[in-house]
């Protein structure tokens, strides 16, 4: 038995090294801003940068809007498909998987062609319109995760019985959706929401090509011009990702790693 543990131990140790060394190196690098001593100067500089504050809040707001729109799109759809149109389920699943096939850069290329200022629906003609287009694009990117999470959540409760019970008690459709179904799939929506947040917060391609002052393009800009701040930003970004995944596990399910795996499972992170 002992002999057979050697190989797994070596593998896990090497893996841990590969995963931890870049984090340690980045942390170390981020603290080297003041010559000859370790300090948190780079972090102070980053946090004090007005562009950091502006772009970061822009992306947080974009992420929150994306989550709301994603939930508004996905929850009623998943509900009605399960309840009334089970035959359309394959089609809806196919559509929600498409964002994994179409790279984000291709998606935004299409937006720029269809929704430019001289088109029939000139989203990019105004700043507000471009922001809306950006959030819609993010909603598309998060569709696979959001839909999968919510649909799984609905599979776990008997929505038909719940709906019938609520109806026989005289509840209206809106009451059923808002006060019966929604609370029951809240955990699922939250799982989708935290994944969405992790995707949107540092997203680069859409924001950059739509020329929006988001966190992703700011990161890239700092990376191209500064030495120590990028490392500090990388640590901050890592902390945010960690927090999102932590919340996802906290709200997702009691089994560590299970839900996380099944939500992320099969979907790579695309184009980031």
């Amino acid at each position: 038995m002992n002999r057979s543990r050697i190989a797994p131990t070596v593998i896990v140790t090497l893996a841990a090294l590969y995963f931890l060394v870049p984090l340690v190196a980045t942390l170390e690098f981020s603290m080297r801003m003041v010559r000859g001593t370790y300090s948190l100067k780079a972090y102070q500089v980053v946090f004090a940068d007005p562009r950091f504050q502006a772009t970061f809040s822009f992306s947080v707001i974009a992420a929150l809007c994306t989550i709301v729109i994603g939930a508004l799109l996905v929850v009623p759809t998943a509900y009605w498909i399960r309840l009334k149109f089970p035959r359309l389920r394959g089609l809806v699943e196919f559509i929600t998987l498409l964002p994994l096939v179409v790279p984000p850069i291709v998606l935004v290329f299409g937006y720029l062609r269809i929704y430019n200022s001289s088109s029939w629906l000139p989203f990019t003609a105004t700043i507000a319109g471009t922001n809306v287009l950006l959030v819609f694009g993010y909603a598309v990117l998060s569709l696979p995760y959001m839909y999968r999470a919510v649909d799984t959540g609905m599979g776990a409760i008997d929505i038909r019985t719940l709906t019938e019970a609520a109806e026989s008690l005289g509840a209206s459709r809106r009451t059923i959706l808002m006060r019966v179904i929604l609370p029951n799939v809240r955990a699922a929506i939250l799982s989708g929401a935290f994944l969405t947040f992790a995707i949107v917060i540092g997203e680069f391609v859409l924001a950059s090509l739509l020329n929006r002052p988001a966190f992703g393009p700011y990161l890239q800009l700092v990376g191209a011009n500064r030495a120590y701040e990028p490392a500090a930003l990388a640590m901050i970004a890592f902390a945010i990702t960690w927090a999102c995944m932590g919340f996802l596990q906290l709200f997702g399910s009691g089994v560590p790693g299970r839900r996380l795996g099944s939500t992320i499972l099969r979907f790579g992170k695309r184009g980031r």
């Binding site: 896990v12 893996a15 990161l219 990376g223 596990q249």
Partner: peptide, 25 residues
């Protein structure tokens, strides 16, 4: 559980910050 949790984080840690981390490494 440690490895799967970390994998969940690391598989989402991509994009620009990942590039920074490897430049620092």
């Amino acid at each position: 559980p440690t490895m799967t949790t970390f994998s969940g984080v690391a598989s989402n840690f991509a994009g620009v910050p990942l590039a920074f981390a490897f430049i620092a490494t």
